[in-house]
Design a protein around this nucleic acid. Structure first.
Lengths: 253, 253
DNA sequence: CGAATGCAGAATGTATACAGCATCGTGTTC
DNA sequence: GAACACGATGCTGTATACATTCTGCATTCG
């Protein structure tokens, strides 16, 4: 239960945004049963805001892909099959590949190159200084940053928007499935492969090798495929996947 | 001015949908100045519905990409640079390429192949029977149908959703720029090239040649690039481009 | 003369009341 | 005992009233 008294009455944070964040949290934490109808009035009670902001939040979360419109009206919590998750990751890889190619073909500013390079140096540091256990939280943060920089290097508002939509699915974003590796003995190996791809794509962009940059980013996303497969096989690792409660598991004996 | 009395009071067609359609029309026809703020109350007056459905429509059109949220609140009509239009087309080509590759790799049912083939036959008919002047309206319709079939062959809900978003931009959809050719002497030539690509991609899918299918769809979308370039050069052809009023033209002496 | 401040108007964000419809349960009848 | 119909409940869709905030202009002070 969430207390309505928890309202941080910051001005400038509208009720709509508050409702949207809280609602997304409820969905991702699985407190709303997947497939179930999301009642507006219940949300009014739980979130402590009136129906109007709740409705706005519902509409936006539907556009985000976390909810589904019910033909007769209202919304329900969406469920995802394994296939859909795989496809979402593939789409992300494809779009990130396009971003890398555009960046390579058009050329990028020295500042951007510097930023990306610095980011990779920071990741190298994280991986080098921690021989026993890697600071995953920091890795995840830096990884997300590198991917953001890459997208910004493409300098395409339209592409950025599309990628924003894909990454809205919590299990499709670049860093979503990284923590799954944490229980794997191969973690360091996989991370170093991923980091090598980071370096390679940056080099390719610098050298204006569009096709190569694109191919690398596509393959890079497929590391997430492997991590997903691992999580699906070892059910206990599913806890580490954000929004995993939305994924319809196939029956495994 | 639009009369509010024009309300077709079909039940089952909600006010929200009505507002959304009407508002989109206003934007695309350029009756709302690009860049300008869209006042809710004015829309209430013009569309003949109350503020609530207008607000819903505004939010949905923002997600669609036709409006832009103003930081201080409200929405404004979005403007697009030539660069953005090009990029939107490139994104569509990339995603359609992914769809074609997935279809090829996974294989498609005989029924799908038949449907696609029938559609292409119909297009062939249109192009053959009209030696003097092609029935462009029918071509556009069949072309859109073929692209829809192609997407459905990928059998990916997530991918279909993403493509829906790209095609929501009126000038980015597969058939949007076809009419531009109508004033060109090369029209028949370009259309036959496009149709050949249609045939080739279907063959590639049938033969499970994923890489080829993908490459063809990418190049296929670039025909739209050429048409756009043409429309931008000959300003009089811009009338044939849907939503052209939203495109910020660069100055040409 | 320019800049800053205050006021007025309007626009959005929010809450709530009302109407129509879907859904579910119960009672009656065959 | 089962099936159909009717009613009640609760839901969403819509409209509107209220509050807050932003904006633009005018006035005043430096």
């Amino acid at each position: 239960m969430i207390k309505a008294a928890e309202n941080g009455n910051d001005r400038s944070v509208t009720q709509t945004v508050k409702a949207q964040l809280a609602l997304r949290d409820l969905v991702l934490r699985g407190e709303l049963n997947p497939g179930e109808r999301v009642s507006e009035l219940q949300m009014v009670e739980r979130l402590g805001v009136s129906r109007t902001p709740v409705r706005m939040a519902l509409v936006r979360l539907e556009e985000e892909g976390l909810l589904e419109a019910i033909p007769s009206g209202g919304f329900s919590v969406k469920t995802f099959s394994e296939k859909e998750v795989f496809e979402a990751i593939e789409i992300r890889g494809t779009l990130e590949g396009l971003a890398a190619r555009l960046a390579a073909e058009r050329g990028v500013s020295r500042t951007d190159l510097r930023n990306a390079s610095d980011c990779l140096d920071a990741i190298d540091d994280v991986m080098r200084h921690a021989s026993a256990e890697i600071d995953l939280l920091r890795y995840v943060e830096l990884n997300a940053r590198f991917h953001d920089i890459l997208i910004s290097m493409a300098d395409s508002q339209a592409l950025a928007r599309q990628l924003e939509r894909v990454n809205a699915l919590p299990f499709a974003s670049p860093s979503a499935l990284v923590p799954v590796q944490s229980r794997s003995p191969e973690m360091n190996y996989i991370l170093s492969v991923a980091q090598d791809q980071h370096h390679c794509v940056l080099t390719a962009i610098e050298r204006r090798e569009g096709a190569r940059a694109e191919a690398i980013m596509r393959e890079h996303a497929r590391i997430a495929h492997r991590n997903l497969e691992r999580a699906l096989t070892n059910q206990r690792d599913m806890d580490l996947v954000p929004g995993s409660v939305l994924i319809k598991r196939r029956i495994r004996a």
